[in-house]
Design a protein around this nucleic acid. Structure first.
Lengths: 240, 240
DNA sequence: CACTTCATATAGCAACGCTATAGGTGCTAG
DNA sequence: CTAGCACCTATAGCGTTGCTATATGAAGTG
């Protein structure tokens, strides 16, 4: 019954919960199943984790490490938007390979209670999008882009999980993914990639902004503000 | 206790369930609450609806009529893609105004069990996208486009529901919506933004510069200067 | 040794979704 | 009018859920 004697009960509970979450098909996972598999009784669970959700949160943190590890390994491809695509695919892959764990992480929605994990995933995406922004590859602030992309990513994954396995069509994922990324990117070409060779730096961006601001005066700043702004921009631009 | 005597119990159950789903804050709704409010006992519920989910499905069908009615009223604007935008907004609006009902409809995800309602919503969207396809306005088969857009729509709505009310930012919705629609449409609108007096390139450059400055703090500006600089940058980059 | 602190077990509560069984109701057939 | 027959509802309770009041054991400290 208990599968891992002589380990501390806290760890046995974590492993039992993880195993049940990973393998249980369809129905929910009960505390009694978990404690039975772990070879402990109910109060032990509540002593260590407070309540069922506390246990699941702990399991999820561990599962999330795995998820994040998958995301970070892909990271340095040099092309940030390509990395965002990989993060998207990794997200979907994780959801489909461990649907119950995923549902605990992202599918357990209740009004006004945001799972902590969502913020983490969002931060991860934002970090990557920030790199894209530095290269001038996106036309939306990274934070908003991250939220938007993550929302679509979760929506797609949930929808795929809800479908019968044999009907799951991953094209839904790739299509939505590319739609979202394309929409926030500055790529101009519909079919072919732009040859704009990216690779901007602070200086390049500043120069571009400087030129753009002088060409069409923005009405977001007053004229005196604009003058000072342009002076600072010049200092930055001429720093290299 | 029972609020609507002399109506048939089936209808009283439906109304009680709908009312509880609409008003219950946070916690779940139990069959006992429902039967108590309806003034009937448990077997009555199971006689008419089979099980709890059957009742909820029935409530949802009724609620869905309302939802669909909202969608159909908007329909004939002549511009199909504009109608898709309205359907998207209506969807989000419905979710935020009746979050519990919405969660029963779209948030109750379990592996390989697709809520019937999703197929209906998908069909509705597909129908509209078909009109767009006939006018040559989209570059993707309507069915796939509908699935993709609906997935993103649900994802956004769930994410907004999970957020605290005061933090809810509908821009997440409009931005994701336009991203999705733009991506499937044949508009070559990327250039249209450039027509927009070059403002978009200003925004792109500002976003890039903003990200670059925060990544590697330049030593060309003092910290107080930088602070003000970034504030202005933010004003510019969030102008459109 | 006495004392505190932590960790686990015994036993059980209230609430849950659901149901076996039986009784009441209104209908049609004879 | 009555007998039979569906249909609908109630009494009572089953098995399971998440969780806990209480007690017991073990381990460290004075």
């Amino acid at each position: 019954m208990s599968f891992d004697d002589q380990l501390p009960p806290k760890i046995r509970l974590l492993r039992a919960a993880a195993e049940l979450l990973a393998n249980s098909e369809g129905s929910a996972v009960s505390t009694r199943q978990i404690t039975k598999l772990a070879g402990v009784t109910a109060p032990t669970l509540y002593h260590h984790f407070g309540d069922k959700e506390g246990l699941f949160d702990a399991v999820v943190s561990a599962g999330f490490e795995e998820y994040v590890a998958g995301e970070r390994d892909f990271a340095p491809s040099g092309e940030p938007l390509e990395d965002v695509r990989r993060m998207w695919d990794n997200h979907v892959q994780f959801g489909l390979s461990q649907p119950h764990l995923y549902l605990v992480m992202f599918g357990n929605i209740r009004p006004e209670s945001r799972p902590a994990i969502v913020a983490d995933a969002e931060a991860l995406l934002e970090e990557m999008l920030n790199k894209a922004a530095i290269s001038g590859q996106i036309n939306v602030p990274p934070r908003e882009a991250a939220r938007s992309i993550l929302a679509a990513n979760v929506g797609v994954t949930l929808m795929l999980i809800a479908e019968p396995v044999e009907e799951r069509n991953l094209e839904l994922s790739t299509m939505t993914r590319d739609s979202m990324i394309f929409a926030v990117s500055t790529e101009t070409a519909r079919g072919a990639a732009a040859d704009d060779s990216g690779k901007s730096s602070v200086v390049v961006a500043a120069i571009a902004l400087n030129a753009a601001l002088q060409a069409s005066h923005s009405d977001q700043l007053s004229s005196s503000e604009l003058k000072l702004f342009l002076e600072w921009l010049h200092r930055i631009s001429s720093s290299s």
